[in-house]
Amino acid sequence: MSDDLELSVTRLIDAPIDVVWRVFTEQTNEWFCPKPWRAEVDWDLRAGGRSATVMYGPNGEENRMEGIILEAVPGKRVVFTDAFKGDWTPQGPFMVGFFEFEEEDGKTRYTGRARHWTEVAKQQHQAMGFADGWGKVAEQLAELAEKAKVEARAVTGDFPRMAFPNESPAYREARSAQSRGADTNSGRRPSTWLVTSEQV
């Protein structure tokens, strides 16, 4: 697929990836679509998982989207498509979407991309307001993440750590115990936000 069929937005978020990923996964309904619209997002963040979204407009509009998660790498990227719905049932494809995160000097480079099957679909997406819409989504994600960063510092003076799905509960508990022991000398307890296998 040619890059000529791709649309993208990017934003440097003043928060570390752990914080951005937490907001991305736990406060999805708050950033997913431009206000005054609101969203109800049902994601099963694993390869083959369901991607279902309903967006509600201020005048009673309702836009439903059903798709499949193609890839989900915690703290790295999520890839989804509307080419299939549940149980790999084909449906008229429009795009493959990407949410990507990269560390950049202690901050997070967020990129949202949409790859289209045809030039017609790309132009249609542009006409729908891709740049403004996806740009506003990036802005809302940034505002939430930067607020969460400030709140985390105010409470603990530290940032959370992110657990990955292949970590067993026993491993996480052992790591947590080790962290508590390491913090004994400093007189504070660590703050730990975990993205568990149930969430990803």
Rank of each mutant, 00 (worst) to 15 (best):
F24R: 00
A142E: 03
W134Y: 03
R50L: 13
A131V: 13
P58M: 05
F164P: 04
E198S: 12
V19I: 15
S2E: 12
Q199F: 01
W43M: 10
S197T: 03
M55E: 01
E198W: 08
H125A: 13
L144V: 05
L5M: 09
P90C: 00
E40F: 06
W134H: 03
T192D: 03
W43E: 09
P90E: 02
V19A: 03
E100A: 08
M128A: 05
Q124A: 12
L194E: 08
R113M: 10
A170E: 11
V41Q: 02
G187Q: 02
D132Q: 15
L194D: 04
Q178C: 02
E71W: 13
A182Q: 09
T118I: 01
D14Y: 10
Y110G: 04
T156N: 12
V54P: 12
D14A: 15
Y110S: 03
F130V: 07
W117G: 07
E66L: 13
Q140I: 07
T184G: 09
T156K: 15
M55W: 08
E40L: 08
R188K: 07
R77T: 05
M128V: 04
Q140N: 06
E61T: 02
V20S: 03
E151K: 12
E40S: 11
A83V: 01
P160D: 07
W134I: 07
A154G: 03
A72E: 02
T53Q: 15
G48Q: 08
P93S: 05
T196H: 03
Q123G: 10
K147Q: 09
G157F: 06
Q91P: 02
A131Q: 12
M95Q: 06
M95C: 06
V19M: 01
L5W: 02
W37H: 11
S176W: 10
R50A: 11
D4A: 14
A152V: 01
E103T: 12
W88K: 00
A72C: 04
G60D: 01
S186L: 13
R77W: 04
G49H: 06
L5I: 05
V73W: 06
W43Y: 15
A114N: 04
N59C: 08
A127Q: 13
T192Q: 05
R22D: 10
E167Y: 11
A52G: 11
A131K: 13
D82F: 14
M95P: 07
P34D: 02
D132R: 15
E143D: 14
F101P: 01
R113E: 06
S191A: 14
R180F: 12
T184P: 05
A148M: 10
F24I: 09
W31K: 15
